[in-house]
Design a protein around this nucleic acid. Structure first.
Lengths: 251, 251
DNA sequence: CACGATGATTGGTCTATGCCAATCTCTCGC
DNA sequence: GCGAGAGATTGGCATAGACCAATCATCGTG
């Protein structure tokens, strides 16, 4: 464990004991208190500023910032996403069967079209309300003896990590607009041809092994993406998914 | 101008003279050559790695990486966006008139609902093909004597910078899925109720003055967003808009 | 009492240096 | 001929120290 990561954790604990808007000790003070160099502390603080926990004011201090409604779009599971919003993530398994990959899925998973894959369809819910329809494809060899019960109201990522020791490290996700068809509308409890986001994601382990190909259909009336834009080229746009309240839609 | 920024520029020039895949000089070598400390050089290189120009390989070297097809989602105008893709940006002004803000636009622009605003509707084209429908709201005081001719096939951002000295520094953009209505379908040459992205953006100057509120409707069959995901929390997701070729859609 | 100068404090940037860890390369011995 | 191992080279991380720049509180002066 690097010192920087350790420092990050210690500062996070410190933040927990402070009110929003309060200042943390000065950099010089903190670095000597923690027994590390100021540069190392600054690297850890940079981290926390990027993640939105802290806010710097030159000449004034570093302050605990307002908690974000949504964190940035990272490689998180639906479950984790909802937990961060303070909502209860639910899941109803609609389908679970083994099949062969086929051309498109095979290409996405980097396996032969004949390879066996497990197909999982789940309805994902937030506080009991249907939010998204998820279709997962996973190479069958990776998840032997998977049962419906294991998937019920569970995070798939946590499941495969605990049970199979598979840890997702990176991925690629595309986002496009679409509309719901009859089946999807029924499952999501929205009118036919409602606008929706279609996310397609492939995820890999640190070793580069492709673990899953997921197509998720999110209700467009409840899910939206927000990007903070900055002219500075050294700071990527911060894209945050946001749940829209039912009333928060005028247009 | 900070030394780090200067260094970034000098390294960029160096990269221009190298082939993709070639290694740049080692950090120790470069830092002494440029007469700066290694840490400062590393900060500049970190920058370029984040922006996708360079790739680090521990124990091996730092290499010029494959140029990205699309840069990350930054605060760019449609025109700049298309230029980067090697396409010709076009614009047809559909409407240009002065009106009062109204409640919603007033709130977005942080002006009174009675304030005068200029409303601009433009059809944006890439290589002659309609791509997006843009509805701009700008406080009238900011852009006196704006005419249709100035807007023709021009970047609005470049226009207001050259003519009025207004420079956009930051902004906030929301993204949601929607479908086209009759008028929009006709203008964009797509079937009625086609899926589309609705972008809403407010932009500010460095001084914090809100300059514009834009609603852009992008064709869902030609425009898509791609996000590189990473488990590391210190690296925000890289979201890149991608133009889909007409044939690049199976589903 | 109001206000401006001033100095202390805070974050921002840079230098110089050392050691660790991953990788590559070359050489030596079988 | 070839593989194992040593050493050189590269990026990764951490330290200590210095100075700059923005901010804020305070104190003295009008």
């Amino acid at each position: 464990m690097s010192k920087q990561v350790l420092t990050r954790q210690r500062v996070l604990e410190l933040i927990d004991q402070l009110q929003v808007g309060e200042a943390i000790p000065s950099e010089r003070r903190l670095s000597t208190d923690l027994g590390i160099s100021r540069l190392t502390l600054r690297a850890a603080l940079d981290d926390l500023v990027r993640d939105g926990y802290l806010e710097r004011r030159h000449g004034s201090g570093t302050f605990v910032s307002e908690p974000k409604i949504a964190q940035q779009l990272t490689l998180t599971s639906f479950s984790e996403d909802m937990r961060r919003r303070g909502m209860t993530a639910g899941s109803r398994t609609i389908e679970l069967r083994e099949t062969h990959a086929g051309a498109a899925v095979g290409r996405a998973l980097k396996v032969s079209p004949d390879a066996r894959v497990v197909l999982i369809r789940r309805l994902r819910m937030a506080d009991g309300e249907p939010m998204a329809l998820e279709t997962l494809h996973v190479p069958a060899a990776l998840v032997p003896d998977l049962t419906r019960e294991m998937l019920e109201d569970a995070s798939f990522y946590e499941l495969i990590e605990r049970r199979y020791g598979v840890v997702i490290a990176s991925g690629m996700q595309s986002i496009e607009p679409t509309v719901t068809n009859e089946e999807e509308s029924k499952l999501l409890s929205v009118p036919l041809h409602s606008p929706a986001f279609l996310f397609e994601r492939t995820s890999r382990t640190a070793a580069g092994e492709t673990v899953e190909f997921v197509r998720s259909l999110y209700r467009g009336d409840r899910y939206r993406l927000v990007a903070e834009l900055s002219q500075r080229r050294d700071r990527p746009a911060l894209v945050t998914p946001v749940l829209a309240a039912a009333a928060d839609r005028e247009t």
